[in-house]
């Protein structure tokens, strides 16, 4: 009872163990490490979309591999830095590793990633994908983030999760839901983190 009361007395801001500034610096450092290869990142994203729109199975498989690689890259790069300041990060990185493996499995032994814009689900999916790829970074810019600390697909977890939800919705997968669980779980974690950061 005492323990429960103790836990209930915590507020989200109390559990945050780093400052908003230190969190923002993570992205600045990631971008600095990637520089000047941002062009290549953009090229890979365009390649992924183009391949996912092609009718050939091999192209769709390649698109899936690129999406899995984005999750692996976030697990590798972002979470490596994040683990320095958040004791929970190694566990959270597991979300990204698991999702990378799941998408890789779909790409290698399943149908791959084939997207389209026919139907309501697909169009909503594409809108969400665009949000993750472009809208999210632009929104951050609009609320005052510096270009140097932008959160980008394949580098930062939030846009990667958002874009993936969109791509999976617009894909021709018959049962996309199991693959959506981890990205949605991440969005929940991200929302809690932002809530804590904004009320810190």
């Amino acid at each position: 009872m005492d323990t429960l009361a103790t836990w209930l007395s915590y507020r989200p801001g109390d559990l945050l163990m780093f400052s908003p500034e230190t969190y923002r610096r993570l992205f600045e450092r990631l971008n600095l490490e990637l520089w000047p290869w941002h062009g290549l990142l953009a090229l890979l994203v365009v390649a992924m979309l183009w391949l996912a729109l092609r009718p050939e199975r091999v192209a769709q498989r390649a698109a899936g591999i690129l999406l899995a690689a984005a999750w692996a890259a976030v697990a590798w790069g972002f979470f490596d830095l994040y683990a320095e300041i958040n004791l929970l990060a190694p566990w959270l990185a597991g979300v990204f590793v698991a999702q990378a493996l799941a998408i890789a499995a779909i790409a290698l032994v399943g149908p791959g990633l084939a997207i389209g814009y026919a139907g309501r689900r697909a169009r909503i999916g594409l809108a969400i994908a665009c949000w993750g790829l472009l809208g999210h970074p632009l929104l951050l810019l609009a609320v005052g983030r510096s270009p140097a600390s932008l959160e980008l697909f394949g580098l930062a977890p939030d846009p990667t999760a958002i874009a993936t939800i969109g791509l999976l919705l617009s894909s021709q997968l018959r049962h996309p839901v199991p693959l959506l669980v981890l990205p949605l779980a991440w969005c929940l974690i991200a929302a809690l983190t932002w809530w804590a950061l904004l009320t810190a």
Binding site: L16, M17, F18, S19, T22, R25, L81, E84, I85
Partner: peptide, 13 residues
């Protein structure tokens, strides 16, 4: 040092 010194390996910080 809670929060304030938790800056990881960031050389600038």
């Amino acid at each position: 040092t809670w929060i304030t010194f938790n800056v990881g390996s960031d050389p600038r910080a």
